[in-house]
């Protein structure tokens, strides 16, 4: 057991709490500290029930006891990570950033997991980015001139916590940057829609692309192959509409069902970014 990589979580909200449960299941990782600002929060209660050490001292908990962990997951906010990143760097901690702070290089495991191994701070982009960038990347690999990529993600209202709601602008900006970076598209656009329907809907992401000469024959098997790669670390990731030409543009859709760890399975948006972060942390652990 002592060989597991010691990880701490900053942020005791929905993302942080779900992440903790996933770490407890990992053969490569252990959660040595769960840090928030309020000991009374639901996340803290969950940590206590799982026997995880907790603190309400924010980043100071790690500054005061640097040996507590080797890697820190930051699930606070974009503003929070901007403050935490230099501190963690100074302490020599690996940082996996789940906020849209855009400090470290963008990591999308289905696309660039191995390239991220040598980096000290990686950014997990956004939930919509994790769902769509691998598909946009394949579109860019198959087609030379990608004019435009547009991604619409619809998530269940219940799965969007206060930080997500306050950070919609950052979500859009970060997702658009990620799409551009990985697909090579000249223009990108990201849209996020919250749907309050009961029973809650699963996360759904639609990727549309405008390219000079669509090559569907080459694209479809490559997309299916990519979906297979993602399913290895996000089991509930499914292609619901395979690439098709509609109104002369490429359209495809995926639906993400979560593992149902902290929130019910409709919260595929939390699940996919956390599964991606775990995949990255395990990659560090395997190569430590």
């Amino acid at each position: 057991m002592s060989k597991k990589l010691k990880t701490a979580i900053l942020g005791s909200g929905l993302i942080g709490t779900d992440l903790m449960i996933k770490i407890m299941r990992s053969p490569y990782l252990e959660c040595t500290l769960f840090v928030g600002r309020n000991l009374q929060s639901k996340g803290m209660a969950k940590a206590l029930s799982l026997g995880v050490k907790i603190s309400d001292q924010s980043i100071d908990a790690i500054v005061k006891d640097p040996s507590c962990c080797d890697l820190v997951f930051d699930a606070t906010s974009a503003k929070g990570h901007a403050v935490h990143a230099p501190i963690l760097e100074k302490l020599g901690k690996l940082a996996i950033d789940l906020t849209p702070a855009q400090v470290g290089a963008m990591c999308v495991p289905g696309v660039n997991l191995k390239d991220c191994r040598g980096l000290k701070n990686v950014n997990m982009v956004t939930c919509g980015g994790q769902a769509s960038i691998p598909l946009a990347y394949v579109v860019g690999q198959v087609h030379k001139d990608v004019e435009y990529i547009e991604v619409v993600s619809t998530i269940s209202s219940r799965s969007a916590g206060p930080a997500t709601r306050a950070n919609l602008d950052e979500y859009i900006e970060t997702t658009e940057n990620g799409l551009k970076h990985f697909s090579g598209a000249a223009r990108t656009k990201a849209i996020l829609v919250l749907n309050p329907a009961q029973p809650c809907i699963n996360m759904q992401t639609t990727v549309r692309a405008t390219v000079a000469k669509p090559d569907m024959e080459a694209l479809i098997p490559r997309v299916k192959e990519m979906v297979g790669i993602i399913q290895k670390y996000v089991p509930g990731y499914n292609l619901v509409v395979a690439p098709t030409l509609e109104n002369n543009r490429i359209i495809m859709m995926v639906r993400v069902q979560g593992l149902g760890d902290y929130l019910p399975s409709y919260a595929g948006n939390l699940d996919i970014i956390n599964c991606a972060a775990i995949a990255m942390a395990e990659e560090y652990a395997k190569n430590a």
């Binding site: 619409v152 619809t154 849209i191 829609v193 919250l194 749907n195 309050p196 329907a197 809907i201 759904q204 639609t206 619901v240 509409v241 098709t244 509609e246 359209i251 859709m253």
Partner: peptide
Amino acid sequence: RRRVVGGQEDLIVEVAI
């Protein structure tokens, strides 16, 4: 029936298929 909201126009294609 699916209680779609504004901005979910992508579902039109899925439903049509």
